[in-house]
Simulated scan of single mutants.
Amino acid sequence: MAPAEGRGLSIKVAVADGALSALRASDVEGHDARVAAATVGLRDCDVILIGQFSLVRSRAAVLQAVRGAELITTPDAAVTALRPLVVARHGE
């Protein structure tokens, strides 16, 4: 989309160290806080992709941390891609 609009495209990566360990220890608030903290450096991004299914539960914390960026999750992207295929094959 960016190249079609005449804009450049750059990719930044953020890793939420300790988030999965927190989740495994049933510390969901700690998990979400670690994920949100990892995204603070992405505030200047237009779009953020949460590319790990286990991170999706932190969506609200991420949106609060990055304010203004569009947030895409892998489950949402999968449903968006698969829905037309299912509808085409089986109907609404």
Rank of each mutant, 00 (worst) to 15 (best):
M1P: 00
M1V: 06
M1T: 05
A2F: 10
P3V: 00
A4V: 05
A4S: 10
E5N: 05
E5A: 11
G6R: 00
R7S: 10
R7I: 07
R7M: 13
R7L: 14
G8C: 03
L9R: 09
L9D: 07
L9V: 13
S10H: 06
I11E: 13
K12G: 13
K12A: 15
V13A: 12
V15W: 07
V15Q: 12
A16M: 04
D17M: 07
D17C: 06
G18D: 02
G18P: 11
A19L: 08
S21R: 07
S21D: 12
A22S: 11
A22I: 07
L23C: 01
L23M: 12
R24C: 08
S26Q: 09
S26T: 11
S26M: 06
D27L: 03
D27T: 03
D27N: 11
V28Y: 14
V28H: 12
G30P: 12
G30I: 12
G30Y: 10
H31Y: 15
H31L: 13
D32S: 01
D32P: 00
A33F: 06
A33W: 03
R34A: 14
R34K: 14
A36V: 07
A36R: 00
A36N: 04
A38S: 15
A38I: 02
A38T: 05
A38F: 01
A38H: 06
T39C: 15
V40T: 12
G41Y: 08
G41N: 02
G41I: 06
R43E: 05
R43A: 11
D44A: 13
D44L: 04
C45A: 13
D46N: 09
I48S: 06
I48C: 03
L49P: 01
I50Q: 01
I50V: 09
G51W: 01
G51I: 03
Q52A: 15
Q52F: 02
Q52V: 12
Q52C: 15
F53H: 14
S54V: 15
L55D: 04
L55C: 09
V56Q: 07
V56G: 07
V56P: 09
R57K: 13
R57Q: 14
R57V: 03
S58G: 04
S58R: 07
R59W: 13
A60L: 13
A60K: 05
A60E: 14
A60T: 13
A61F: 12
A61G: 04
A61R: 01
L63H: 03
Q64M: 11
Q64E: 15
A65H: 01
R67Y: 10
R67M: 10
R67Q: 11
G68R: 03
G68A: 06
A69N: 05
A69S: 14
A69L: 08
A69I: 06
E70N: 03
E70R: 11
E70I: 04
L71F: 10
L71W: 08
L71Q: 08
I72W: 12
T73I: 00
T73C: 02
T74N: 10
P75G: 10
A78P: 00
A78C: 05
V79I: 15
T80C: 04
P84H: 05
P84V: 14
P84L: 09
L85R: 11
L85G: 05
L85M: 10
L85N: 04
L85Q: 09
V86M: 13
R89D: 11
R89L: 14
R89Y: 09
H90V: 14
H90W: 15
G91T: 10
G91D: 04
G91K: 15
G91S: 10
G91L: 14
E92T: 04
E92M: 08
